[in-house]
Simulated scan of single mutants.
Amino acid sequence: MTDLRTRLAHVYWLGGGTGAGKSTISTHLANRFGLRRYDTDRSMSDHTARSSPGETPYLQDFLAMDMDERWAKRSPEVMLDTFHWFRGEAFGLIVEDLLSLPAEPIVVEGFRLLPELVEPLLADRRQAVWLLPTPGFRRAALEWRGSLWAIAGRTSAPERALGNLLERDRMFTQRIAGETARLGLTGLVVDIDRSEEELADQVAKLFGLGRTGSTQ
């Protein structure tokens, strides 16, 4: 593990709840500080194809379900506890991808960066931040993107499915907040009273970007 910490010492980890603005903030940081950017959401299809069925049982169960079974017929609690990415399945493929890239400063972002999986990889604990959106911020962000009904609208019970999704994601953010606190890592609450620029500035400061000895 010490070797992995050394090999990944150039990585800045930006995790957190869904709808927290991770993609937006990571893009700000990449543009401002000349970082490479790795979006774990975009790798999900590739990682699904590369995964061994025996190592991803929750993913296999999810793939076998229709949209109603996934989002409308199960409780938010069951959805939270059985969602494959929330269980850390295929996280090793994220690490594999990072190790295949040039060893230059890179910001990695996505909800798949669970604190308990990232913590053992940190050479510098300051290089990991988790964004914790309030329920109000999450809903406003999804409405602004036009994606509020993107999943729920494909079920036969959109209102129920949306309620399930929002509650599942609220509980996931709560879980992330608990894990960052337990491990002594950095969690940052995100609410509607903070601009993108202000949030990007705060994350950059937490990462130590712009200091002497950092990327700029």
Results as ranks from 00 to 15, higher is better:
137 F>C: 03
151 I>F: 09
139 R>H: 08
178 G>C: 10
149 W>G: 10
183 L>P: 00
155 T>K: 01
135 P>M: 13
153 G>A: 10
158 P>G: 11
157 A>W: 00
148 L>C: 07
143 E>Y: 00
154 R>K: 11
149 W>S: 14
144 W>F: 11
150 A>G: 07
143 E>W: 01
174 Q>F: 07
135 P>H: 13
186 T>V: 13
140 A>E: 15
165 L>D: 06
164 N>Q: 01
137 F>W: 15
143 E>P: 05
176 I>Y: 02
165 L>G: 03
180 T>N: 07
183 L>S: 06
135 P>C: 07
182 R>V: 03
166 L>H: 05
144 W>P: 00
161 A>Y: 05
134 T>C: 05
183 L>G: 11
178 G>M: 08
133 P>T: 11
148 L>T: 00
180 T>P: 02
166 L>P: 02
181 A>P: 00
170 R>I: 04
153 G>R: 02
137 F>K: 02
141 A>S: 14
159 E>C: 01
159 E>F: 08
169 D>T: 03
145 R>D: 12
138 R>Q: 13
167 E>K: 13
147 S>Y: 02
165 L>C: 04
157 A>M: 05
133 P>V: 12
157 A>I: 04
164 N>W: 09
184 G>N: 13
174 Q>H: 09
148 L>G: 01
179 E>S: 11
139 R>Q: 12
185 L>H: 04
152 A>F: 01
151 I>G: 00
144 W>A: 15
181 A>G: 09
163 G>Q: 02
174 Q>I: 05
152 A>K: 07
164 N>C: 01
165 L>P: 00
153 G>I: 10
155 T>I: 04
174 Q>K: 09
162 L>H: 01
175 R>E: 06
167 E>Q: 14
180 T>L: 03
134 T>V: 05
135 P>K: 06
141 A>N: 15
169 D>N: 13
152 A>N: 06
150 A>Y: 08
183 L>N: 04
163 G>S: 02
150 A>F: 03
136 G>N: 10
150 A>I: 07
167 E>M: 07
174 Q>P: 00
152 A>V: 03
149 W>K: 08
166 L>E: 05
161 A>I: 06
160 R>Q: 14
182 R>Y: 12
153 G>M: 07
152 A>P: 08
182 R>A: 13
177 A>V: 04
172 F>I: 02
141 A>E: 15
178 G>S: 12
182 R>F: 06
181 A>V: 05
